[in-house]
């Protein structure tokens, strides 16, 4: 009887917590790229809540579909690479269905209100 009550109580607690857990948006990858100078791009990846993403795959692909660079974010969650001559996009690939993409026309010099040091050379 005691055991049954124990199981019942725990089942109730678990079902309550399980039922109340809402779809959590916690691990959306985010990617931000800037032009350090005319010929250098720096990208920084992370997760929406403010976590860094060191070691995550980063690819630079041109509009013909050719991979120009396949690398990983460094320990500082950043990667700096020469600016491709043609149109390109940068893909932060965390896993299936979890990615962030930045197109080359979004990548410019840091805006005046971007004070973060990583955007400056």
């Amino acid at each position: 009887m005691k055991a049954a009550r124990f199981v019942l109580r725990h089942a109730l607690v678990c079902s309550l917590f399980g039922g109340l857990a809402s779809p959590a948006f916690a691990h959306e990858p985010v990617l931000r790229c800037v032009l350090l100078d005319e010929s250098t791009v720096r990208c920084r990846g992370g997760y929406a809540e403010g976590e860094d993403a060191p070691g995550v795959n980063l690819e630079v692909v041109d509009y013909a579909g050719e991979t120009l660079l396949a690398s990983k974010l460094g320990k500082d969650s950043m990667l700096t690479f020469p600016r491709p001559k043609t149109g390109y996009y940068v893909l932060l690939d965390v896993g299936p269905g979890s990615q962030a993409i930045v197109e080359h026309d979004e990548i410019g010099p840091p805006r005046s209100r971007d004070m973060a040091r990583w955007m400056r050379n």
Partner: peptide, 22 residues
Amino acid sequence: RALRVSGMAFGGNGRDRDVEIQ
């Protein structure tokens, strides 16, 4: 620009599926 860069996948257990995109 390719199938593998189609964006974030919808997720969720019920009939309603959610996604949050950059």
